[in-house]
């Protein structure tokens, strides 16, 4: 299956603005991030504090829904899904 990944702010410098990635059926967000980590140097460090520990700076949306409200890193991905990765700004 194919999914689209959209990256914002400093994550764009690592992944590019948008990419399509081929994944096995039933893959999870965790698997997607691992695949991106293997193909893109610096991605793992930008996203995680430690093994499986997402940095609080990063938000991951699957088709507009924050994965915090789904199954977090175990959220399943389907063909055609759009995954957005971005660090929200907080200043005013």
């Amino acid at each position: 299956m194919k999914v689209t990944v959209r990256a914002f702010a400093h994550l764009r410098d690592i992944l590019g603005k948008e990419l399509e990635i081929e994944l096995p059926e039933g893959e999870t967000i965790r698997g997607l991030l691992a695949a991106l980590g293997e193909s893109h140097g610096g991605f793992q460090e930008a996203l995680f504090d430690g093994p499986g520990q997402l940095k609080p700076l990063n938000n991951i949306l699957k088709n507009g829904r924050n994965i915090d409200f789904l199954d977090q890193l175990e959220t399943q991905i389907g063909d055609g899904d759009v995954i957005a990765l971005f660090p929200p700004a907080a200043g005013g």
């Binding site: 764009r12 603005k17 949306l61």
Partner: peptide, 17 residues
């Protein structure tokens, strides 16, 4: 989302939880 470094603006889909 405004990315001033690249001069681009994008809309990210959002939906209610």
């Amino acid at each position: 989302f405004w990315d001033g470094l690249h001069g681009e603006m994008d809309g990210i889909d959002i939906s209610r939880n």
